[in-house]
Every structure is written in C-alpha cells, then in structure tokens.
Design a binder for these strands. Sequence first.
RNA 1: GUGAGUGUAGCUCAAGGGUAGAGCACUGGUCUGUGGCACCAGUGGUUGGGGGUUCGAAACCCCUCACUCACCCCA
Length: 420
Amino acid sequence: MNIQTIKGFKDILPDEIPKWDFVEQLLRKLFKSYHYKEIKLPILEETTLFARSIGTGTDIVEKEMYTFDDRDGKKITLRPEGTAPVVRSLIEHNLMAATPLAKLFYIGPMFRRERPQKGRYRQFYQAGAEAIGPSGPLQDVEMILFLSQFFKEMRISNLTLEMNSVGCPQCRPNYKALLQEFLKDKQTGLCENCQRRTLINPMRVLDCKNESCQKMLHNAPEMVHFLCGECHDHFEEVKSGLGVLHTVYRINPRLVRGLDYYTRTAFEWKSDFQGAQNTIAAGGRYDGLVKELGGPDVPGIGFAMGIERVIALMDPSLTPEIELPLFIAALGKTAQEAALLILAELRENHIGAEMDFQNASLKSQMKKADRYNARYVLIIGEDELKSGKATLRQMKTKEQEELPLQTIGETLLEKLRPPI
RNA sequence: GUGAGUGUAGCUCAAGGGUAGAGCACUGGUCUGUGGCACCAGUGGUUGGGGGUUCGAAACCCCUCACUCACCCCA
C-alpha cells in the first residue's frame, strides 16, 4: 500500500496555488487598508487554552480536538480556531498596553477531527481578524464591512448575511431560563440531542437542523426580545451602522454561535451553494474572553473565514492561466550553452524563461513551449549559430523575426520587460 | 461517532462469470529545423488490498482499507 495523506488532510497542488495566492494577496491588501496587522502564531498550544475559551461542553473541545501528551506529559492541542491563541498572545506580550486597540489578522491552518465532507477537512485554513480593546458598536460594523468588501472583490454573490445578538452574562441567563421553561413540555417532540441540550445549553436547540425540532420552536421566545438595555442599544447601533452603509442583512433569531465565549453581536455569511457546509465566514463579539484568559477586562470582536470554502465559490476568471514570457528552443550542445547564457540574463532581470535540457527535436520543443503557454519562442540551431542570428517566434501570431545574437539579451529584455 | 454510495490506465469512464477496453493525456510518425488541427502507430493495468465460491472472478460472497456525500458539528 502506498503512503497517502491522512484522512481529511489535503495536498494543495500547484494548479490550485494561483487561487490561494489571489485570496491571500487580496486579504493582505484589504486588511492593510482597514489597518489590521498580521500576526503569526504557533499551531500547537496548551490544551487548557481552548478548554477555557471555547468551553468544555462544546463539541470542538469534547470530541474534535487533536490533543496529545507532549514528551514531558503536558497536554498540547493542534489549534482548532484562531481567536483564543490571539488573545493568549496579546496577554502574554502585554500588547494591549502598547496599542489603544489591537487590530490583528491571521491566515493559517486549523485542525478539527470531524468526519470529512464537502467543504470540511480536518486541516483547513482560516483567515480571521480580531479587534481587541475599548471600542464601540461600529467596530462590529467595520468587521462586517470588511467581509462585505472582500466578497464583492472576490465576485462571490449569492451570500446572505445573518445577524443576531446573543446577549451578555447579564441578560442571557434570564433568557436561557425562559427558553428552558418553554422547551420543558416539548421534550417528546425533540431529537435526543436537543433533549440533552435543553438542560446543558438550551440555546443550541435553536439552530438544530432537525425539522421536527424546528417545528417545536414555533413561538419560542427570542433572545432579541430579552436583551438588557445595554445589549439592546448595542444591537440597535450595529443595525443602524449597517443601514448607513446600505448593507443587506437578515435578522436570524435562531443564529447561535457554537463557541461559549461569544456575547452580543453574532453574524454569519451563508452560501446558497457549497452543500451542507454552507457557512463561509462567521464571527461575533466576545466581551468576556480576555478577562477569562487572565487579561484586562476589555471587549473584543472577531471573525473567521474558511478559505477552502471561499475558493470553492470564487470566480475562476480572477486567476487566468499564467503565460511563460519566453521559451528557448536550442538544438545541439553549442546552442544549448548559448541558450543557457540568455536564460540566465533574463532571469537575473526577473523575467520568466524556460528551455529544454534534453536536446529534444525542435518539434517536441515547440510542443513543450506550447504546453507551457509560451508567448515567444527563441530558436537557436546550427543555422542561427552560423549566421549569428536567432529566430524569435511569437506563438499566437506565428510571426517570426531574425535577431542578432550579439545583442540578443538586451533585445529580449526590451521586448519582455513588463510594462509599468 | 452513525448511515449511504463509489473504488478498473496519469484523468474521465466501459466491460455484470469466458483473452481487461474506449476517449482524453503522453511518446513517435505522416511533416529528417517549427506548437495547436487531422490521420496512423506505440507506451501505459497484480481491476484498492486480503481471503472464499468456481474449470474460470474486474464481476458473486466475506473481511479490510481508502475516497465521496449526508447526519452530527462547524469556517
């Protein structure tokens, strides 16, 4: 049996790289204009970090984390998400004191041991942003605006933005109790999972995809109607900010985030395509998290986006096939050596060029050039060496011209230098 | 963790007990130094792996592995 990738792990092959490059470059460009700075963090963290932040009752912590004993016995985990490590790092390096507001972004792999399916892998890439420190409701709006612009520039339409507020430690307990009360006499109609959830985390019943569960939720109390004054005002200001920007959204009172640390604003971008895993990006506020992890009592908000999911939806015309500026077809040892010299000169000037080292027939070299999508082919053979001129063929138009070998390097640089 | 489907050439797929095939791709030729098109020829397979039934298995049975989709959950 040949060795192959571990289940749920994927090779990103050369043909797909242009898409990844495009996404990452666009993200970096946009993050720069939104004044977010990049942070690169370890892939392994102490297990406690995730248990404390994401919540011990969540599926991620309960059954999806890659957790190992390190050689000294310490429990370590492949990061399943990016927010907790960012917060950890800010606290560890006391970066909150250095900036009025820490606006950071990251791009990198996350790991969750779920059963793979379309749009879901055990190693997957997320791009995320966090704004940690004193801020206001318009910070939430900025986050959403960023994603809105990103999707627009990616030419991804058919996305819906869903919004909700999940309250705070002041108002959520009351609501939870109310919801529990509501669900009490509906247990028989709920799936097994939701019966359990009613006791542990009743809000998770709200976004159960089971049809019969959804039926039972008719007339269920909605968090938005039980927000405390501050949460209510916050949510109103977020909505009003989105209105100013003409951002289209849908209030989804059933939208509940899966991680324990979320407070107030929750949002999610969903796609009409992409099968069952249709959440492309999601995020929310986590006002208690920094303090929970041992830092100052400052609010925070962030989002994460699944890069594979974005790439699956992106417009392929954004990454056109790459052209090779020049292919040199050389025939014979002397010609090959001359070609090598030209190749070196072009590459020194950062111009893409290629030749064949096999001394194949001209025909097969032309074929190769064609497959490389070469713009020009420079032919150097016996005839050319004798006459001191090389043949330059433009592949698309089939036009050919003779160029003196003496000054060939300069001539080619002139022709191939990309216009600025 | 549960369920269903699929594993045959580099890729997409035929053959449903009787000699493993096609298209695309690749290599060469027609065209001895000029790519794409056309035609011709060639290379390429322990039919995912193991066991069983049979005179004979890619096919039928059992086990196993992998992939895919869905449940669950989530980006």
